[in-house]
Design a protein around this nucleic acid. Structure first.
Length: 490
RNA sequence: GGGCCGUUAGCUCAGUUGGCAGAGCACCUGACUUUUAAUCAGGGUGUCGCAGGUUCGAAUCCUGUACGGCCUACCA
């Protein structure tokens, strides 16, 4: 801490002492405002601007003192409202006590609304209460907090200073609520499954490892929700979903955070076609509920999320972009050499599935701006998906892309327990280098042996969906506390 | 992991050719009963990210390093 900050803090600690010496508790236990600022203003309008006694509470964000009269702005969860304090109404003692209220303090205030000469609806205070003394100066009122690192590390300051930040996280809450009500209305049951698992299955990613002391066992933080949810389908939950945090020990970027929120839902007796309909309906109806329209603006581009979304086959799409038909290269070696011919630097630790993924990521994905389903992925990229009815080399799987970002991944779930066991084996056999592979979960296989009905499954990255619907270009803008490297000072 | 850029007062930012560390907001004192980025008069201010180096002299030039941002590579 440097001296200016120290001095402000010292002044405020002195103010605290003065407050206490007057027998006032600067940190009382509760306060019950009769209205929020937004409700109060709306009510005043509805009642023909007739004054009515009420109480409000919020953080002081501005102060304009003018001798025997002062204006303060407070902000609560609903918005901002101006307060007016007059010496002649409050009396000398209370008006003097106003000196102890600084910008940043939280106060409660009682009074009646009126409209100022400038036309602003304002509460004329008849009494006020210190609810919390603040010891630190807030960010500058006009420019706010511009330092991106400080915005993420001290998100509360960002929220105090930035209406846009407040708005994004309120919208995020409405989005998850809308997704839940969409699924609940269709008979899906929301469940919670373990974050700590003895094996991290359901996706291909490096897990975080931790240790349970009492059991003396290593445990993994989940990388997907898939396997437990499919066990629940076996258990008779025909429509089930979870919105949960998953953890992947991989790179951080504007599109990746080590922990992120995943929606997975499973519908018995459905296939990936049904999941396509479900996801396009869900995303477009959530968008309509949140923004009032299916048209969104992202990175300067207008995108219409209304169904039906474009449907294209992965194989033909990749071929159209880079003239490589992966069906012509049935093994890793031949595909790798073809990609080498095309001038691509190919990582020797990648299997055929990863190579195809690379073709997709580098040639196709950035161009998939309008909502698009890419259909039918090679079986080896999709160990938990059922083979296509007319092509055993492909799986009934799709990924949905909007604005160049993958937002959903779904398949017709593989429910043949013998084939599932083989696919896990095959994954291990074809493993190249230290590539991540799908891990066989014995209890999952047993569950399939008891019998899982034909099922469609869908995964949606909620953070990315929020990015899309709020027009943000970075995942960190939609995650309250994004992962940053630890910093020892401040 | 690689490349580029940034880091100066609580906040937002200037800082010229290497020559006393600056402004606005905020803060303190005073004036002010309709202000609202209030206004007016006055006041105080810093680990120039950190560590070295060059120099009579470094916020400024050089080296290293930490953190962050963007691009890139991998993953959703």
């Amino acid at each position: 801490m440097t001296s200016r900050l120290e001095r402000v803090t010292e002044q405020r600690l002195n103010s605290l002492k003065r407050i206490r010496s007057k027998g006032v508790n600067p940190y009382p236990h509760s306060y019950y405002p009769s209205h929020t600022s937004a409700d109060a203003i709306a009510l005043f309008g509805r009642q023909g601007e007739s004054p009515q006694s009420m109480s409000l509470a919020g953080r002081v964000v501005a102060r304009r003192r003018m001798g025997r009269m002062a204006f303060l702005d407070i902000r609560d969860g609903s918005g901002k409202i101006q307060l007016c304090f007059r010496r002649d109404l409050l009396g000398d003692e209370d008006y003097e006590f106003l000196q102890e209220i600084d910008i940043g303090d939280v106060i409660g205030v009682e009074g009646k609304l009126f409209r100022t000469r400038a036309g602003e609806i304002t509460l004329e205070a008849s009494d006020f209460t210190m609810l919390c003394k603040s010891l630190r100066p807030l960010p500058e009122k006009w420019h706010g907090l511009a330092d991106v690192e400080k915005r993420y590390r001290h998100r509360y300051l960002d929220l105090i200073a930035s209406e846009e930040a407040r708005s994004i996280f309120r919208v995020r809450s409405r989005i998850t609520a809308a997704v839940r009500s969409f699924l609940n209305a269709r008979g899906f049951v929301e469940v919670e499954t373990p974050v700590l698992q003895s094996q991290a299955g359901g996706a291909l990613a490096r897990p975080f490892v931790t240790h349970h002391n009492a059991l003396d066992e290593d445990l993994y933080l989940r990388i997907a929700l898939e396997l437990p949810l499919k066990k629940l389908v076996v258990g008779g939950f025909d429509r089930v979903y979870e919105i949960g945090r998953v953890f992947r020990n991989e790179g951080i970027s504007v599109r990746h955070n080590p922990e992120f929120t995943l929606l997975e839902c499973y519908q018995a007796y459905a296939d990936y076609n049904d999941m396509m309909n479900l996801v396009e309906e869900m995303v477009s109806s959530v968008a309509r509920e949140i923004t009032g329209s299916t048209r969104i603006v992202c990175g300067g581009k207008e995108i219409d999320l209304a169904p039906p979304w474009q449907r294209r086959y992965l194989r033909q799409t990749i071929k159209s972009y880079c003239d490589i038909d992966f069906e012509d290269y049935p093994d890793t070696a031949s595909l790798r050499s073809r990609m080498g011919e095309a001038g691509m630097e190919v990582d020797a630790a990648k299997g055929r599935g990863r190579l195809i993924d690379e073709l997709l990521a580098s040639f196709v994905e950035p161009d998939l701006i309008r909502p698009t389903f890419l259909l039918d992925y090679p079986v080896e990229m999709s160990p938990l998906a059922k083979r296509k009815r007319d092509n055993e080399r492909l799986a009934e799987r799709f990924e949905a892309f909007v604005n160049g970002i993958e937002v959903a991944n779904a398949f017709t779930e593989l429910n043949d327990p013998v084939e599932q066991r083989e696919r896990f084996q095959q994954q291990l056999g074809e493993r190249v280098g230290d590539e991540d592979v799908e891990i066989a979960d014995e209890d999952f296989l047993q569950a399939l042996e008891y019998g899982m009905p034909p099922t469609g499954g869908l995964g949606v990255g909620i953070d990315r969906l929020v990015m899309l619907l709020t027009g943000q270009q970075s995942l960190r803008e939609v995650i309250l506390f994004p992962q940053l490297k630890a910093k020892s000072d401040d």
